[in-house]
Amino acid sequence: MRRYAPAAACVLALAAAGGAQAAVTVFGGGMAQACSAAARDGVTDPAAEQACTAALEGELMPARDRAGTYVNRGIIKLRRKEYAAAIADFDNAIKTKADLAEGYVNRGAAYIGARRFMESVVDFNSALQLGVPEPHKAYYNRGVAYQWLDDPAAAYLDYQKALELAPDWNLPKAQLARLGFGASVAPPAPKR
């Protein structure tokens, strides 16, 4: 029996933004588990993608594991900056299991890579509404999107929320510092 263990976000490193990546864990053996391990471990070679494809084409699995395998294959493609192909896999994951928050948060990251920032914000909102297991990563990702949308107030709030949820996480700290928002700096005024 396979078991699905949720993970959170896959962030693209655009400009000076850092990245945090996680995959959907599939247990129980077979190619789907190999695909899960490859995505979790940061593997990007064609053999890892082929393991995912073999699992999707040849293994019987519950909808949650099938959706997770699409997410994992999408992560492998995303890391290679194959944004359109990654988005297609995340679309398939969401079609398979519409309440899989990781599908939305990873598709949002791919949208950032494809410079489709408004669509990424919509996906991060969906992931947060669905209760993504690691919301700090969704807030961080959305902050990156808001930066690209030239909305420093919204980016600031999301980086602060990510930091509140994960106080030891260095990525939001680095973004806030890079943007000049230290502990003693007032947040930017909201866009009008």
Rank of each mutant, 00 (worst) to 15 (best):
Y4D: 01
A5S: 14
C10V: 12
C10L: 12
C10P: 07
A15K: 13
A16W: 12
G18D: 03
A20R: 13
V24T: 12
V24C: 14
F27S: 15
G28W: 08
G29Q: 02
G30P: 03
M31T: 14
M31K: 15
A32F: 03
A34K: 15
C35G: 05
C35M: 05
A37S: 15
A38P: 07
V43C: 05
V43I: 09
D45Y: 02
Q50C: 10
A51V: 06
C52M: 02
M61A: 04
A67C: 04
G68P: 00
G68Y: 00
T69R: 00
Y70I: 01
G74T: 12
I75C: 03
I75E: 03
L78F: 10
R79C: 03
R80Q: 09
K81M: 06
E82L: 05
K97G: 12
A101M: 09
Y104H: 02
V105E: 05
G108F: 01
A109T: 12
R116I: 02
S120T: 03
V121D: 11
D123A: 11
F124A: 01
F124D: 02
N125E: 07
E134Q: 13
P135D: 02
Y139Q: 07
Y139L: 06
W148K: 08
W148M: 09
D151K: 13
P152W: 01
L157S: 09
Q160I: 02
L165Y: 08
A166L: 01
D168H: 11
N170F: 09
L171F: 04
P172N: 04
P172C: 00
A174L: 07
Q175L: 05
A177I: 10
R178S: 15
L179D: 15
F181T: 01
A183C: 00
V185C: 09
R192I: 14
